[in-house]
Design a binder for these strands. Structure first.
Length: 160
DNA sequence: GCCAACGTTGGC
DNA sequence: GCCAACGTTGGC
């Protein structure tokens, strides 16, 4: 069963255009160093799942497009790489601490669905966005999206 | 650059 | 296990 997620990234570091420019549009979603997010990557995110690409800490904060998970959780190689800023001396190949997934670019929306717009829509009565994790636990960088939320936002992205 | 919210660390 | 201090995230 397909599940839905929202992954955050700072576009100055790695934005949706960077993913689209990768070979076959496939990139590694690594560098996640938060236990709650790690647990989701390790245990819950599955191949075939659909993901919103969210741009944080930038001019246009919001959802920029979609991607698909093409490889489920595996140990993040960066934790073993001494030259990486994501190196973790307490992690070992036998006992990896951090996990990553592979994703494939799917589509870039014709406009960024702004966080402010999502907040406004969430305030409407009966909105499927009212309990969206993004609006209630905003710091989590890997977060679940419900199917109604996914469909609602996809419909929003189709209108110009 | 500010600051609120929240996660992590470490002494006890 | 509590909690103060500190660090990070992320919107504005």
């Amino acid at each position: 069963m397909t599940q839905y997620w929202l992954f955050k990234s700072e576009p100055d570091e790695y934005g949706i255009d960077d993913l689209a420019a990768e070979s076959h549009g496939i990139g590694v979603w690594d560098g996640i160093r938060n236990y709650q997010a790690r647990n989701l990557l390790r245990d819950e995110v599955k191949e075939g799942d659909q993901v919103f690409f969210y741009h944080s800490s930038c001019k246009q904060v919001g959802i920029a497009g979609t991607m698909q998970v093409v490889r489920a959780g595996y140990p993040d190689p960066a934790q073993f790489d001494q030259s990486s800023k994501y190196f973790d001396s307490k992690a070992s190949e036998q006992k990896p601490r951090w996990f990553c997934v592979d994703v494939r670019f799917e589509q870039k929306f014709s406009r960024v669905i702004a966080l402010s717009e999502l907040k406004e829509l969430a305030a409407e009565s009966g909105s499927p966005l009212s309990d969206m994790v993004l609006l209630n636990q905003s710091r989590l960088s890997i977060q679940p999206v419900s199917k109604p939320q996914w469909n609602y936002i996809m419909a929003l992205a189709q209108q110009s």
